[in-house]
């Protein structure tokens, strides 16, 4: 992709960070999946996370909305520290949207119902207002005409755009993307990436696990490379791609950039 890099929204450096991860560790049984994760994400910042499979990148962003539990360290999202407290977890989840590799739309509900469910039940929004909000975001992802269909009747790319709209309907402050284009046919990747670029242009705080390096170049403020559960290298996309420091990063980039 040759498009120009999108400038970051101007951020007050003294403002509270959107996400703070301090010395986070996680184990699956005996297996140490996340090791010594330290990461600060400013508001409006776009971060792309890449790395080989099994390197812990998905696990890391899933810790941010507590789909996974961390066992050591602290994670503070928008000023709320994640603990066992269910109330706080729900509060964080309300403000953090997530888009999954396999969309995870609800197949028994129509597209519109998928989008209005959380606003109605979690935010207690009146149905009519929720439907207006949903139609607004469905229009933004360019599929308002599919509102009354079921997810199974849409293509993969359309489903993923619905999933993005569904998250946006909760007006989240932070969006997490967990390999949003990996399950898509090549022809559909672009429509989803375009939607994500649009979000980035509006100043959404985004963390994307993805191997779309063109997207990283165009959108990211920082690129993080992970391996063996650790952050191996973190840099601006320019530096990251032109001049990778760590040997492992160089090997990885040589494999995926031809």
């Amino acid at each position: 992709m040759s498009a120009q890099h999108i400038p970051t929204a101007t951020v007050d450096p003294k403002a509270q960070p959107a996400i703070e991860m301090i010395d986070v560790h996680k184990w699956y049984g005996e297996f140490h999946v996340l090791r010594d994760i330290n990461l600060n994400v400013r508001r409006g910042e776009r971060i792309v996370i890449c790395g080989p499979s099994g390197s812990g990148k998905s696990t890391m962003i899933r810790c941010i909305n507590r789909l996974e539990e961390h066992q050591k360290g602290r994670i503070i999202v928008d000023g709320i520290e994640l603990t066992d407290d269910l109330k706080r977890i729900d509060e964080v989840r309300r403000d953090v949207g997530m888009v999954f590799q396999h969309f995870n739309l609800f197949p028994h509900l129509t597209i519109l119902e998928n989008c209005t469910l959380a606003p109605i039940w979690v935010k207690k929004m009146p149905r009519k207002e929720a439907e207006e909000v949903a139609m607004h975001y469905l229009t933004r992802v360019k599929i308002p005409e599919q509102a009354n269909k079921y997810p199974g009747q849409l293509s993969g790319g359309q489903q993923q755009r619905v999933a993005i709209a569904r998250s946006l309907c909760m007006s989240p402050k932070i969006m997490l993307f967990d390999e949003p284009t990996s399950a898509l046919d090549p022809e559909m990747v672009k429509e989803v990436l375009d939607t994500m670029v649009g979000l980035a242009e509006e100043g959404m705080t985004m963390l994307c696990v993805t191997h779309e390096m063109g997207f990283a170049r165009q959108v990211a403020d920082r690129v993080i490379f992970m391996d063996y559960g650790q952050i191996v290298e973190m840099n601006t996309p320019d530096e990251f791609f032109r001049n990778p420091q760590h040997e492992r990063t160089r090997l990885f980039l040589s494999q995926i950039l031809h």
């Binding site: 909305n65 789909l67 269910l86 729900d90 989840r93 309300r94 953090v96 949207g97 997530m98 999954f100 396999h102 969309f103 995870n104 739309l105 609800f106 469910l117 959380a118 039940w121 979690v122 569904r166 998250s167 909760m170």
Partner: peptide, 20 residues
């Protein structure tokens, strides 16, 4: 994924079970 989709939207356990 259905559980995760529901949880990521902030639905609590009774809502997730009864709606999704």
């Amino acid at each position: 994924g259905q559980y995760e989709g529901a949880m990521s939207l902030g639905l609590n356990y009774p809502q997730m079970m009864s709606l999704i």
